[in-house]
Design a protein around this nucleic acid. Sequence first.
DNA 1: ACAAAAGTGTTGACAATACACCCATGT
DNA 2: ACATGGGTGTATTGTCAACACTTTTGT
Lengths: 238, 238
Amino acid sequence: MGKDVDSETVAKNEQSVMNAITIDCVIFGFDKGSLEVLLVQHAEGISKGKWGLPGGWIHKKESTDNAAHRLLNELTGLDNIYLEQLKAFGDPDRFPLRRVITIGYYALVKREDYNIKAGFTAADAKWYKINEIPDLIYDHNEILSFSLQHLRNRVRQAPIGFNLLPEKFTLLQLMHLYEEILGVEMDKSNFRRKILHMKLLLALDEKQQDVSHRAAKLYKFDSKIYEKLTQKGFNFEF
Amino acid sequence: MGKDVDSETVAKNEQSVMNAITIDCVIFGFDKGSLEVLLVQHAEGISKGKWGLPGGWIHKKESTDNAAHRLLNELTGLDNIYLEQLKAFGDPDRFPLRRVITIGYYALVKREDYNIKAGFTAADAKWYKINEIPDLIYDHNEILSFSLQHLRNRVRQAPIGFNLLPEKFTLLQLMHLYEEILGVEMDKSNFRRKILHMKLLLALDEKQQDVSHRAAKLYKFDSKIYEKLTQKGFNFEF
DNA sequence: ACAAAAGTGTTGACAATACACCCATGT
DNA sequence: ACATGGGTGTATTGTCAACACTTTTGT
């Protein structure tokens, strides 16, 4: 949950939100070879100064999915974000003040698109590398590690990893993304064969610019072919 | 949700339950080659007479997982059931009277163990074949089809299918289970090789009884080996 | 020239598939 | 004897992992 969440004021005064359910988002980004998560710092309340997942309350008239999209947009300004529900976290003691159940979501964003929203400063919101996560409020460490586990599984069954990369990318960039997420080393040659064999990528007539070595061909993700493949349930095993 | 759920009485009078969140369970069983789901009939309220998923309210002091287990036990009398959360369903209009979010669970039960709990009659609770599901209350058809999709995916990645079979089973029974869940035809010989190669099964010194053909060897599921395999994340692709 | 990454080719091991066939048992 | 399912064997094809090698480009 975000800035004001552990102050009870919001829930008590606002009749327009549900008062025993919140939403928390794990926002993944990929930058310079590292998988990162966007955390926010609490400005007030009992956990002032501590970091946590961005989140907030659900309006009475919006779906939980919409609420998650809205919260994400309020924080990052981004609109068409890959967003999926993880599950509900319902331990009776997870929130110290009273019984609140939270619905976890995870999002994948392209770091190139991301600009922190006006109203937030570097002190409020910050990207943390996945293996440098501090102690978070409530059960947010648990939600985060669940989402990481989930991402590792999903990424092997559906080509959602693309959502973390720029529109145009090289095969090696894609491979490094998988290596980072799954924590494994891969063989360049075999990776190329495998991914090209799936016909999911569209080769562009463009090459990398300004690199101090042979420029690699750029590819983009072909969503039409992806649709076909997801329907008959394919296997993206790496 | 179960018998009394759409009467508001429970939520309003009972201070001990959360009033805007419920739990709904999809209970899968496997009988005579068919995948089935346990549905219950509403006794009162606006949807009297209609069938729906069993479910109910969450007590203030129990986790959502415990609530699901409790509800399942109240209905079936069973204790050690395979139970997993699906996700939260949060459409603002899913429940007609007011805003209620439900957390979906799915359970796999061995039909041999199952006995309907006292207090329920055949008119209250009934097994329905997966392709003969009637119109259900609220968004329960949606929850059901989501859970079926989820089951089909899960069953290919973890050996949870065993939870639907008796303690001791034959290889062909197991194969038929997979065929039914996944909706495919399999090759007997190849299935044997594949499943035995995984070393997940323990061959017993027992054979089928009272069958009008050659009796098949019985196997049981080796949970120790399963633990090992799940940890390094294996692939149960069929 | 050489570093660094792009990109290709080859090989051997192993797994998936499709079938053909024999075995045991009750009616 | 035959129907029914249990159980074995094999030949082919395809996929995967390991690794050696060539190509391009900036410094």
